[in-house]
Amino acid sequence: MNTSHALKSAFVTGATGLLGNNLVRELVARGVAVKALVRSPAKGQQQFAGLAGVELVPGDMADVPAFAGQLRGCDVVFHTAAFFRDNYKGGSHWEELQSINVDGTALLIDHAYRAGVRRFVHTSSIGVLNGEPGAPIDETCLRELDDADDYYRSKILADQAVLRFLGSHPDMHASLVLPGWMWGPADIGPTSSGQFVNDVALGKLPGLVPGSFSVVDARDVAQAHIAAAARGKRGERYLAAGRHMTMRQLVPLLGKIANVKTPTRELPLALLYALAAVQELYARATGRPILLSLATVRLMVKEAGRTHFNHAKSERELALRFRPFDQTVADTVGWYRSQNWF
């Protein structure tokens, strides 16, 4: 089913998030009426103040039936919501990951179908893929469950829930978009990238950390979702991971744009583990987000060099293009400045 019919109405989960809010804005700009699922109506009003064409739907992925009635009449559901607090809250959160990312996704596609929706775009993650360090990774390089941390495992299982649903409902159309590490404006969460921008701008980064990342503009990922709804093939995965960057490239670029001095020394691994352990204790005592958790350090070590992605399929089938990353960083820094974060 390869149709490019015009979308008139869309339901977006995770609407106040970094990807969700940029997707909502892009849809509205194209004349699509949006129902935006928000856990906090106050945050929703703050995020979309003065934006016509957005209806806020209070609700939570932990209780899909409570808002399922609102799915009626929508042409497509964009499922961008996910629980990913592991990265900077420390500790273990498997129950929430299972309930929100896995069970929530299965319930959402089922309720969407029952409400008459036949198009579904699921936000997956590059974490569901795996490859040799330095080798280009594409959509066929699937990660084994036993090689995944808790967050990645929840995303693999969520993908499987979507594909299983397609297996038993031949008239449902769904495709999956796999973003890299997203950056961009209006990251009020903030997500780990927004937290990172603030930490660097405020001089809180103690030194360079090892590792490489695939960095991408959330607005480009939003375009990929809309293209997947219009042109994506049923049951197919599409990478939207952006470009490969090491910390040694990323931090000075951020420093230059934010006009701050940045560290040049790489922190030894033993020190990183020690810092992360201390930060986790701090997080547990205060409940505040932290810069570095043990999960993050483990991930940086394990995934180093595994962030070279081949986007040929998304470029060919979704006409996906990436804006220059300098522009993304400038827009992100500019947005935080305009909001007086630093």
Results as ranks from 00 to 15, higher is better:
Gly69Val: 11
Gly255Cys: 10
Phe165Gly: 00
Lys8Phe: 07
Leu253Ile: 06
Gln47Phe: 03
Glu132Ile: 11
Gly232Glu: 04
Trp335Ile: 09
Ser125Leu: 04
Arg323Cys: 13
Ala295Asp: 13
Trp181Met: 15
Leu269Asp: 13
Phe213Pro: 00
Asn2Met: 14
Gly20Asn: 04
Ile290Gln: 03
Val57Met: 04
Leu318Arg: 07
Val297Gly: 05
Ala240Ile: 05
Phe342Asn: 01
Val54Asn: 02
Cys141Gln: 13
Leu202Lys: 15
Trp94Thr: 04
Asp86Lys: 05
Ile156Lys: 00
Ile126Lys: 02
Glu280Gly: 10
Ser125Trp: 00
Tyr273His: 15
Ile290Ser: 01
Ala224Ser: 11
Glu317Arg: 08
Pro41Ile: 00
Thr296Leu: 14
Arg298Met: 05
Leu202His: 13
His111Gly: 08
Trp181Ile: 13
Trp181Glu: 13
Arg118Phe: 10
Thr246Glu: 11
Gly189Val: 12
Lys204His: 15
Ala283Cys: 11
Tyr113Phe: 14
Tyr113Ala: 12
Arg337Ser: 09
Thr264Met: 09
Lys313Cys: 00
Val297His: 02
Thr80Asp: 07
Cys74Ser: 12
Gly211Ser: 08
Thr296Met: 14
Ala106Ser: 12
Glu139Val: 07
Asn2Val: 15
Ala285Cys: 11
Phe67Pro: 01
Leu250His: 01
Phe165Gln: 05
Arg323His: 09
Phe120Trp: 04
Phe67Glu: 00
Thr105Tyr: 04
His311Pro: 06
Thr123Ala: 13
Pro65Lys: 05
Tyr151Pro: 04
Arg25Trp: 02
Lys233Gln: 15
Asn198Leu: 15
Arg153Asn: 06
Leu97Asp: 00
Glu26Gln: 15
Arg248Ser: 14
Glu303Gln: 14
Leu294Thr: 13
Glu95Gly: 12
Ser99Val: 07
Pro252Tyr: 09
Asn130Pro: 01
Pro185Leu: 05
Ala52Gly: 13
Ala330Cys: 10
Val57His: 00
Val28His: 02
Arg248Trp: 08
Met172Pro: 05
Met182Gly: 02
Arg321Pro: 03
Ile137Asn: 01
Gly31Val: 02
Ala285Asp: 08
Met182His: 04
Leu178Cys: 13
Met61Asn: 06
Glu55Cys: 10
Asp110Asn: 14
Arg39Gln: 10
Arg143Cys: 12
Asp75Ser: 03
Glu236Phe: 10
Gln339Thr: 10
Pro252Trp: 09
Val197Glu: 03
Val128Tyr: 00
Ala304Met: 12
Ile100Val: 15
Thr16Ser: 12
Asn21Asp: 08
Phe342Pro: 03
Leu176Lys: 02
Arg143Pro: 06
Val200Ser: 00
Val221Lys: 01
Asp149Cys: 12
Thr286Glu: 12
Arg316Phe: 10
Ala228Gly: 09
Leu208Asn: 06
Asn87Cys: 11
Ser338Gln: 13
Leu145Glu: 14
Val333Ser: 02
Asn2Phe: 11
Phe11Val: 01
Phe196Leu: 15
Ala174Ile: 08
Met172Ala: 11
Val54Gly: 03
Val162Phe: 01
Val177Ala: 06
Leu178Trp: 00
Ala227Ile: 05
Thr262Gln: 05
Arg219Pro: 03
Gln98Val: 10
Val77Ala: 03
Ala283His: 07
Val24Arg: 02
Gly59Pro: 03
Thr80His: 03
Ser338Tyr: 08
Tyr152Cys: 14
Asp60Ser: 11
Gln195His: 15
Ala186Val: 12
Leu254Tyr: 01
Ala277Tyr: 10
Arg237Ala: 00
Val215Pro: 01
Glu139Asn: 07
